[in-house]
Simulated assay, not measured.
Amino acid sequence: MHKAIRAYVRAVDRMNRVIGRCAMYLIFVMLGVLLYSSLSKTLFEPALWTLEMAQFLMVAYFLLGGAYSMQLDAHVRMDLLYSHWQPRTRAIVDVLTAGFLIFYLGVLLFGGISSTQYAIEYDETSYSSWSPRMAPIKVVMCIGVALMLLQSIAIFFKDVAAARGETLE
């Protein structure tokens, strides 16, 4: 494959590996917030912000780690037939289905950017009693979807190479 494609795949894999490994630690931050929530409800005045903050952290954990999960091929897959196929057949099927994934993530990113622009322009807040600004979490969501889109394209290139009997590593 072309040198530019190889460089793209290496750069996206490296970036998503670093971001994914950092995002893994958000689970501990979320657990800390939930522990504080439990303690505050039993020992003193309950905090209004803990549940929604834990939800925001879970969104960041899930979306920022999504591309890393795709890179490791650690996501859930229905492999009733897939696991019995030859590697080349898997790569050909993956090339065909990657187009749908890339289209879906493109539409999702387009909608996410539109929603983020709305949140920034109108200073959108949550309807909860804490009422945090929604723009920061929407920006994180757009970044996560963009990283998954970039990783999907890199995986597409890897699958094309595998279908041709080559490797991009």
Score class of each variant (00 low, 15 high):
Met53Cys: 14
Val107Leu: 15
Thr89Pro: 02
Trp130Ile: 14
Gly106Met: 02
Phe62Val: 15
Arg10Val: 01
Tyr25Met: 15
Ala11Cys: 02
Asp159Met: 13
Phe44Tyr: 11
Phe28Ser: 07
Gly165Thr: 08
Val160Asp: 00
Leu105Asp: 11
Leu150Asn: 09
Ala11Val: 07
Thr97Glu: 04
Glu169Arg: 14
Tyr25Leu: 15
Tyr127Leu: 12
Gly32His: 04
Ile19Trp: 10
Val140Ala: 11
Asn16Ile: 00
Cys142Gly: 09
Leu48Pro: 00
Val93Gln: 07
Arg10Ala: 15
Ile5Tyr: 10
Ala47Val: 12
Tyr8Ser: 04
Leu72Tyr: 07
Leu31Pro: 02
Ile153Met: 08
Ala162Asp: 06
Val33Leu: 03
Phe157Cys: 14
Tyr122Trp: 14
Phe110Ala: 15
Ile19Asp: 06
Arg88Tyr: 05
Gly144Tyr: 02
Ser40Leu: 01
Leu168Met: 14
Leu63Glu: 02
Tyr8Arg: 03
Met53Ala: 14
Leu34Asn: 06
Tyr68Ile: 02
Ala119Ser: 14
Met1Val: 01
Ile92Lys: 12
Ala119Thr: 08
Ile120Gln: 11
Val18Glu: 02
Arg6Ile: 11
Ile153Glu: 00
Tyr61Cys: 10
Lys3Val: 05
Tyr82Trp: 13
Ser152Trp: 09
Leu168Phe: 05
Ile5Gln: 12
Met1Trp: 02
